[in-house]
Simulated scan of single mutants.
Amino acid sequence: MATGPARPPGAVELLERSIAYTGGVLAEVRAEHLDRATPCAQWDLLALLRHMDDSLDAFAAAASAPALSLAPSPSGLEGMAVVDRIRWRACTLLGHWHPEPVGSVGLGDLALPRELLGAVGALEITLHGWDVAQATGSRRPIPPALAMDLWPVARDHVTDLDRPARFGAEVDVPDTASPQTRLLAHTGRR
């Protein structure tokens, strides 16, 4: 029996997989890592973790809120307390996205589909998980299937308008590069 092309994974599946990957990375964070540099220019690991905490809060709100604020909510957490809260937020994030929400969320002057916000959230969670891995020295790679499934999200939603404010310049890599390398290169990571 012939089957058609496989349906790309939905936002909830991508979120589940990105949280699983990043959760493994976060388990390796130690207090002595918090002042280390990250691939994110001008951020040490603690600053990156605070950003991740804020982002997870926003992605949870995106599942049901009519609109999101563009202003970050600064985290006053210090030390390993921010890692603990990120783990808690990641676990509860999936609860907000089950069942998969529908409709749009206001973001500034835009109305964005929740499915798109969830997929972009999975991309951000994964990329910052990789950033954390680099800072801690674990070098845990992004699983190839996850990198391949996030590639269309990155390709379609990380554009020249995002550079250099949100992402660095795209890095040239050979066509034979691994899915992780292509994903990271597109988002300005080496």
Rank of each mutant, 00 (worst) to 15 (best):
L45S: 00
D172W: 08
G103P: 12
L26M: 01
G129W: 03
L112S: 05
W130C: 14
L70S: 14
Y21L: 05
P5E: 11
H51L: 01
Q42E: 15
G23P: 03
E115K: 06
L34C: 04
V102N: 13
S73K: 13
L110D: 14
H128R: 12
D53T: 10
A135R: 00
P8C: 07
A177W: 00
T92Y: 13
G168N: 01
R30H: 07
L116Y: 05
I142T: 06
S104D: 15
G4V: 09
Q134L: 01
E78Q: 03
P72A: 11
R30V: 04
M80I: 11
R189H: 09
R182N: 04
G106M: 12
V173K: 12
C40T: 08
A37S: 15
I86H: 07
V25D: 01
G79Y: 06
I86T: 09
R166E: 07
A71V: 14
S55L: 15
V153L: 13
A119Y: 11
D54H: 12
R7Q: 15
P5R: 12
R163F: 02
A58I: 12
D172A: 10
S178I: 03
T181H: 08
V158Q: 05
V153T: 15
L184G: 03
V105T: 11
S138E: 04
V132P: 05
V153E: 13
A37H: 12
D149E: 15
G168S: 04
P113G: 13
R189E: 09
A154P: 10
S55R: 11
S73C: 12
R163Q: 05
V29N: 08
A185F: 07
S64V: 12
P5Y: 09
S69F: 00
F167G: 07
R114I: 06
L77Q: 00
R17Q: 14
A145S: 07
T187A: 06
T22V: 04
E16G: 11
D57P: 11
G129H: 04
R50I: 05
G129D: 05
D160T: 13
L107M: 06
L56P: 00
R139T: 00
P5H: 11
R140C: 06
G121S: 02
S138D: 05
D162H: 15
E28C: 11
A122D: 14
S75N: 11
E124M: 09
Q180D: 14
R166S: 07
I86Y: 08
L127I: 10
R114W: 10
G108C: 01
A111Y: 12
L77V: 03
I125F: 02
A47E: 07
H98A: 11
D35A: 13
G103E: 10
L14I: 10
R50V: 04
D57Q: 15
T181F: 06
V158S: 05
A119K: 15
G137L: 04
A67H: 07
T136D: 03
G24M: 01
D54M: 12
C91Q: 14
V171D: 01
D156H: 00
G23V: 02
Q42M: 10
V173M: 14
